[in-house]
């Protein structure tokens, strides 16, 4: 897959990713000299010099080589919630002729993992009371947390499908799912814990996009396919050579895991 994609793309501006990175490190390292602010750059140069280049534990498999993705298991959801999430996210960001959709990108795994962590439990949000009714300009004021909003939102979707179509969500046609999501987006028919369903919908939509486009380290954007579709290069160390260019430049994307393997 990765190989095929690569062939269709114009050749990279700077040769292989590694080379441009090494070139940059050399240049900036020279410029930095012995000053106090060597930072990451200094650290990387040091390691580069001291360690032979070799494959280390954690190196991703080569393209084409099938390995089991141990990340694809659940931290938070039950199986039914996962299936629901996958079905809904796929309608938000569907597979089409342009490339994979939410399901193939691992978005539901991404959302599951996020809900299990500090974001899902609003760990860094102000969650002290009293909780009062807000004007629209004052933002989210509900007492419950993101993971609770998400779980109850899924339950509301399930209930709505049963009531409107007398079917489980997996049995709905894509058109019916879209109809359902439109109702939830508008937020006028369904309430979830006293909030309009649009609050849940917005969370579903934003986390679907996050799962499609965040670094693959979080479990979504599988094999950087989200980035490829968007012609987004991911984690590049420098664009110095192309910043002034008139023509569009397509890169083979790089992820943060590259920092661990080539230079870690």
């Amino acid at each position: 897959m990765a190989e095929e994609e690569k062939d269709q793309q114009p050749k990279q501006p700077n040769g292989p990713q590694d080379e441009s990175r090494r070139k940059f490190l050399k240049v900036s390292g020279a410029a930095l000299g012995g000053v106090v602010v060597g930072g990451v750059v200094g650290g990387l140069i040091g390691r580069n010099m001291n360690q032979p280049k070799q494959t280390q534990p954690g190196t991703p498999a080569k393209p084409g080589q099938q390995t089991k993705d141990f990340n694809q298991a659940l931290m938070y959801m039950n199986a039914e919630q996962f299936t629901l999430t996958e079905a809904l996210a796929e309608r938000i960001f569907p597979e089409d002729e342009l490339g994979p959709g939410a399901k193939a990108l691992g978005v539901a795994f991404f959302i599951d993992h996020q809900l299990a962590g500090q974001w899902g439990t609003n760990g860094r949000d102000y969650m002290m009371g009293p909780f009062q009714k807000a004007e629209a300009t004052q933002g989210y004021q509900a007492i419950f947390k993101r993971h609770e909003l998400f779980s109850t939102g899924l339950q509301a979707v399930k209930n709505y499908a049963q009531q409107k179509y007398q079917k489980g969500v997996p049995d709905l046609t894509p058109e019916q799912l879209d109809e359902l999501l439109t109702v939830f987006e508008k937020g006028q028919e369904v309430q979830i814990n006293g909030l309009p369903s649009s609050v849940f919908f917005n969370l579903l939509r934003s986390s679907t996009l996050e799962g499609a486009y965040s670094d693959p380290l979080y479990g979504g954007n599988k094999d950087m396919q989200g980035w490829r579709m968007k012609k987004y290069p991911g984690n590049q160390m420098t664009y110095m050579d192309i910043i002034e260019k008139e023509e569009f430049v397509t890169y083979e994307p790089a992820s943060l895991s590259d920092h661990m393997t080539q230079h870690g």
Binding site: L32, V41, Q236, M237, T238
Partner: peptide
Amino acid sequence: ISRAACQYC
């Protein structure tokens, strides 16, 4: 203090 140029990342 010496610092290196921006890489437009």
